[in-house]
Simulated assay, not measured.
Amino acid sequence: MTAPVFRFAPSPNGELHLGHALSALTNQRMAAKSGGRLLLRIEDIDLTRCTPEFEAAIRSDLAWLGIAYEQPVRRQSEHFACYEDALERLKADELVYPAFMSRGDIRAAIIDHEASGQSWPRDPDGAPLYPGTDRTLSSRERRRRIDAGTPFAWRLDTAAALARLPDQLNWREWGDETMAATTDIAADPLQWGDVIIARREIATSYHLSVVVDDALQGISHVVRGLDLYFATSLQRLLQQVLGLPQPTYFHHRLVLGPDGRKLSKSQRDTGLAALRDAGETPETVKAMLGF
């Protein structure tokens, strides 16, 4: 029987905080309980914000917490060709389109719509859905704009992708860390609208790279925070249309700050380095998180 494969996949665009520690420790504990393997993936497709210094800090923090992972570590910035290949497959299947609307164009369309007294739909993160007015442009007009140097991004035609599926789209979710039972969750990728799959300057996005990497690394168990629960719908759609295997998911609780919001890398007082400098030990940090 093949051993389960887990992964902890931070972005090196800031220091790890207590929320990251919870996720890494949960992955470690579930991997140990199931006789599984734990991988580290560095999600650094954002070449402007991700730095080697932050990556080194991630590795130091994980070592301090006593979290071991297999080598080699996959670094996304070294595998853009894999994501470009997946993008080309989506293009060939006519499931993505070049979207030319700027942020100003999108804002103007929303203002016009809401001036009529109607609210504009928003995704689970609260961002307005893309209007999609350029979804129906002719191939000739698309080519003319691209050749003219008009900025664009590749967006998923979510409705078209869903229409290709023969059955209801679901994902498997564990109820708790014991992995005793799973529930089928109905996926609803339409709540995200036509998301960006790749940009002209970076031929991928978080959603595309994560499903490609999970497949290439043989990830069978995706354990991550509840803040990514709704994103699973969209990622399951990409897995399905790209013919990629489906992992089983567990979305653990979040660590909240004093304001009741989930922690961010800008809140340095919850950073692992700051806690270490303040005299905390791996044991006290784990105790803070219930380990």
Rank of each mutant, 00 (worst) to 15 (best):
I42L: 04
H79M: 05
L208D: 08
R268T: 13
K33D: 07
Q235L: 10
R261H: 07
A24W: 12
W171S: 11
A127T: 04
A203H: 06
D269P: 02
R29T: 15
D125F: 02
L208K: 00
V96S: 14
R200S: 12
R103D: 15
Q28V: 13
E43R: 00
T281S: 11
G175P: 11
Q76W: 05
L238I: 07
A153V: 10
T270G: 11
W174V: 03
M30H: 02
A21P: 15
R103H: 12
W120D: 06
D214L: 01
R140C: 05
Q76P: 06
A21D: 12
D184T: 04
R261C: 05
E141R: 15
W64N: 09
R41Q: 00
L62H: 14
T158Y: 09
R75G: 02
L244M: 09
A3S: 04
A86L: 01
R200D: 14
F54Q: 13
A57R: 13
F250T: 06
E141Y: 02
T284V: 06
V222H: 10
R107M: 06
Q118E: 15
L226A: 08
V241Y: 11
S60I: 07
M179D: 08
I185T: 09
K91L: 03
S11N: 01
E94I: 08
G126M: 05
R155H: 01
A231H: 12
L242E: 09
P10W: 00
G218M: 05
Y249V: 13
C82T: 11
G104T: 11
L263E: 04
S34H: 13
S266V: 11
K91A: 10
R103W: 14
W120M: 07
R144N: 09
R140L: 09
P12H: 13
R253H: 10
E114M: 03
D61Q: 14
E94R: 15
Y206A: 00
L156E: 00
A287N: 14
D112M: 04
E55F: 01
M1R: 07
P98S: 09
Y69N: 08
S138Q: 15
D105K: 13
F152G: 04
R89L: 10
A186Y: 10
L216C: 01
R261V: 06
F291N: 11
A127E: 11
Q118R: 15
S77F: 00
I185F: 06
D157M: 03
A86H: 05
H79G: 00
G117Q: 09
T204Y: 01
R261S: 07
G104M: 13
V241I: 02
D277H: 08
C50W: 09
G66M: 05
E173C: 13
Q191G: 01
P124N: 00
P124F: 07
R224V: 03
V210D: 09
A231M: 03
V73P: 00
G279Q: 07
Q71V: 03
H113Q: 06
R253Y: 06
A278N: 05
